[in-house]
């Protein structure tokens, strides 16, 4: 019974982690149809911001929830203005450009901070589920993931900015005719996606090592989840994370972590084969 509780907790944490690493990519892909191969490096920049700020004596929670999204959001804005905006609608070119960006960012951080793994002390204690113990930090991840999905949903559904975003996403031409500048909207979207990626990196920093090359460890999972989820950002990310996160955690526990990853990839392959446009490409099409 205790063990079942521990596994359930792990499954929920696994889903939340997947959600968190995917959502920034989902925003950029869902809104702009840009495959951002520098997503992992944006997460890395968030983690670095968090670690540097914390080492400078700033409270860790402020570093995670304010500074990292802010700094990486601004970096995203600069990248969008200087590189991405010239490549809208050219999917292969954006892939190449963002891949280049990812190599450049890794190189830059290696040059400035050295190629070293840094770590951040975990701010949350452990707690027991019966005879077993686990990290309370899992709850933080779950809370952040739920919070991020919830606020994104509220932003898109309830605010005027959200309406403009959705309009531009569906019919950029018509939105432009109504006096909206798609260019500005894309810029804001890219910055928002970057900020979310930065926050994800910062949230995960205390439980994984922070190094300039950490991005590659997350990028594959994030992509699979975005593609599996489909165009609807909130629902798609949520559903795909639930599916893949559950399979990964359960199979990893029953068999081994490698088999867990294999099972997750197999599910993704089958899913994309049956629903080429992702889960929300077939179901809940009108969702966000």
């Amino acid at each position: 019974m205790d063990l079942a509780g521990l596994i359930a907790f792990n499954v929920v944490t696994g889903i939340a982690t997947l959600c968190l690493i995917t959502i920034g990519l989902g925003v950029i892909y869902g809104m702009m149809r840009i495959i951002n191969l520098a997503h992992g490096e944006l997460m890395m920049l968030g983690a670095f911001t968090c670690i540097i700020a914390t080492e400078a004596g700033i409270n860790i929670w402020i570093s995670i929830f304010v500074l990292s999204p802010l700094v990486v959001g601004i970096i995203g804005l600069v990248l969008e203005r200087t590189i991405i905006r010239f490549l809208y609608g050219r999917i292969l070119d954006t892939m190449l450009a963002t891949w280049g960006m990812s190599i450049g960012l890794t190189g830059l951080i290696v040059t400035v901070f050295g190629n070293n793994v840094r770590t951040l002390a975990n701010p949350a204690p452990s707690f027991g589920i019966g005879a077993y113990s686990t990290s309370l930090y899992g709850l933080v991840i779950v809370a952040v993931a739920v919070g991020a999905l919830g606020s994104l949903f509220a932003l898109l559904r309830l605010t005027k900015f959200g309406l403009i975003l959705r309009a531009t996403m569906e019919r950029p031409g018509m939105a432009a005719a109504l006096g909206i500048k798609p260019d500005t909207v894309y810029m804001a979207t890219f910055a928002l996606g970057s900020a979310l990626a930065g926050m994800a990196g910062a949230v995960l920093a205390p439980i994984s090592g922070v190094s300039p090359v950490m991005g590659v460890a997350y990028i594959t999972r994030a992509f699979i989840t975005v593609l599996g989820g489909g165009a609807a950002i909130v629902t798609g990310t949520g559903l795909a994370s639930m599916l893949f996160g559950t399979i990964d955690e359960l199979v990893s526990f029953k068999a081994s972590p490698v088999i867990g990853s294999v099972a997750m990839l197999m599910t993704a392959v089958v899913l994309i084969r049956i629903f080429p446009t992702g889960i929300t490409g077939r179901f809940l099409r009108r969702s966000l």
Partner: peptide, 9 residues
């Protein structure tokens, strides 16, 4: 590999 939760369980 970055996630070791299932192994720790």
């Amino acid at each position: 590999a970055t996630n070791f939760s299932s192994t720790i369980s």
